[in-house]
């Protein structure tokens, strides 16, 4: 898991996000989590907890302030994973 790339994280996020949204849309790195997928704060936090377990990291809630798109989230996870 330590060798995982940003692209792989993005792909994995796109797959997982499909289960967390009721919106029928194709999910890409540019997809906005709130405006495109209508994911509310509680769903987003639950998704984060799943991701944390998968990568054995902890994502601080305050770091999510700058996360708007799938790519932003992938970048954040990659950064935390790389420094852990």
């Amino acid at each position: 898991m330590s060798e995982i790339t940003q692209v792989q994280i993005t792909e994995l996020l796109c797959q997982r996000l499909a289960c967390f949204t009721d919106v029928d849309t194709e999910i890409s790195p540019e997809t906005n989590l709130i405006t495109h997928l209508a994911i509310d704060s509680v769903k987003l936090l639950n998704l984060i907890m799943e991701i944390e377990d998968q990568f054995d990291i902890s994502v601080p809630l305050n770091a999510l302030v700058d996360v708007l798109t799938v790519q932003d989230l992938a970048n954040l996870i990659y950064k935390i994973k790389s420094s852990s």
């Binding site: 907890m49 902890s58 994502v59 601080p60 809630l61 305050n62 770091a63």
Partner: peptide, 13 residues
């Protein structure tokens, strides 16, 4: 309170 503090906030189940 956590947001006001500026600390890293980690939520557990």
């Amino acid at each position: 309170g956590c947001i006001l503090s500026g600390a890293d906030i980690i939520r557990f189940r």
